[in-house]
Amino acid sequence: MRDIITTMSKLEIKNLSFSYDGSNNVIDDISFSVEKGTFVSVLGHNGSGKSTLAKLIVGLLEKESGQIFFNDVEIDDKNLRDLQTKTSLIFQNPDNQFVGSTVEDDIAFGLENRCFPHDQMQAEIEHFADSVNMLDHLKKEPINLSGGQKQRVALAGALILRPEILILDEATSMLDPKGKSTVRRVIDRIHKENKELTIISITHDIDEALLSDKVLILSKGKLVKEGKPQDILRDESALLEVKLDMPFVYKLEKELKEIGVNSNAENIDQLVEDIWASK
C-alpha cells in the first residue's frame, strides 16, 4: 500500500520512533512521505500518538531514532531551526495558544520573534487578519472572542510566518458547530489559495478526512494504513480495528448494497442521485 517515494517529496519520515519513558513507544517505527502542496489527514483514536507525531515534526520533541528529511535534507541538531521556521502548528485548545493581549498583538507575535521591520508590520497583520476574516476584530481581547475566532487568529499568526508545512492538531475539535464550520471554510480557502503549502490535519473526524488528498491511519503508535481516502476509508473492518468509523457516505453505501442498491458515490448529492436511479 505504501506510496513510492518520489523526488518531488517535501517531507519524508523514515523509521521514526519516540517514547516518553524510554520503553513504551508512543511513535513506533513510522515511515511516510508528504508531497508539497497536498492536504494530508492523520486519523487515529484518542491516544494513538497523533499529537506526538505533530510535535516531532515541528521539533517540539526530540526523536529517539529514525530520520526526518525536508526537501531531501536530513534534519539534525544543526538545521533543526531551519525546519522550525518552515513549519507551523495549530493546537487544539484555542485559549492556550493566544499569546498577545489583543488580536493584532497575537498575530504580530511571530513577526516580532523573526525581527520583522516594525514599519511593515501593520500592513502584514491586516492582510493576514483579513485572510481569516478577523480584520474587524483587531483590537479585541481574547476574553471577548469565541473559540472559532481564536482559532482563526491562531491561523493568521501561523500563516504570517509563511510556513511551507502547516500542521493542525485537532484544531476544530473543541469548537461548536458554527466555529467548526467557519474555521474549516478558512482552512479550505487557505489550501486552495496556497498551492505550495502542505497541510497536515490531525483529526478524528472521518468525514473531514474524506476531503483530503491523502490519509494516514495511526494506531498505538504505528502507521497502519496510508493512501487515498477513496481507497482506504471503504475498508470497514480495518477502520473498526483502529476504533474509527467509516465515513457516512461509504457506510450508507455499504448498507444499501445489501438491499441491492449499488453506488460508489463520494458525496451525499451523488449518493442521492444513485439511490433515485435504482428505482
Binding site: Q84, S88, L89, F91, N113, A154
Partner: peptide, 8 residues
Amino acid sequence: NAMIVRGY
C-alpha cells in the same frame, strides 16, 4: 509550545 513554534 505555542510560543516556541512561533519562533520565540
